[in-house]
Amino acid sequence: MVKSMEEEAIVHFIGFTQCEPAMARKYLSKNRWNINYALNDFYDSELGGFTKEHERSNRRAVYPKELVQLFRDYCSEDTYIDFQGMIKLIKDCGLAIEDLATICLAHILHWENLQDKIYRDDFLQYLFEQGCCTVNDIKVVLKDLNEKLNTDPTYFTTIYNFSFGLILDDDTRNQSIDMDIAIEYWKLFFLNESIQSVEISNELLSLWFQFLADERKKQVSKDIWQMILEFFRKFKDLESLKESYDENDPWPFVIDEFYEYLQDTGKL
């Protein structure tokens, strides 16, 4: 008798979910054969946020052939694109790894770290969202984004902050990046003639580099990385620094040190 009730529940369960009988049994027995609880449990844990799964199943159907082909061109083992694949893609887009547009591309692809792999579904979804199917499409989008980077301060900040995670070594995630790499990237971001979205005093920047070298700073944390942009935005020259810098403000300690350094070396 009991047996048949269970079986009935399984039939119902499969009727809803189209899943394997074993899966149905697992969820039902976990929830004491209460079909409502079991269904909730199933949708919660198996399908995650439901909507996402929904999207995912949707998009599978509609990816254009060219886009799928694009993925095949760069992927490894038919499942993901690794660093090498990305390098190739970047090159084919007419970019170098150190171009800021590359960071924009990484941002689009949610490629949060150079060592991360980009999986097929993600790759297809993110590019599809941008309306890209071919390398040429990507080029067009990146051209627009490059323009946006040049003129839109908010977008600039987003890309700047995003870049920290990208260049971080995988094994020290969320920690800090080496100073020489940081300096190279600062140069990319701040010494770029075409960028108008942020104005940074060359004088302060070179003093900052000087300071880092003199004080033998080795590492840059995420907090410093983000705050130094705010710092340069707020203080356009030595004069304004002299007038309104306050060590009681929440600047990271290293920026206080920088200020002190400027005072000690008579720059202020």
């Binding site: 920690q175 944390s221 907090d223 705050m227 705010e230 060590e247 929440p250 300690f253 290293v254 206080d256």
Partner: peptide
């Protein structure tokens, strides 16, 4: 001293106990 506290804040941020809010002024 303020500098000591700031250094400590930096460390705690680094250790992921704390994060700076988007306004840049609070944690």
């Amino acid at each position: 001293k303020i500098s000591m506290i700031k250094r400590a804040i930096d460390n705690v941020i680094q250790k992921n106990y704390l994060q700076r809010c988007d306004d840049g002024e609070s944690y």
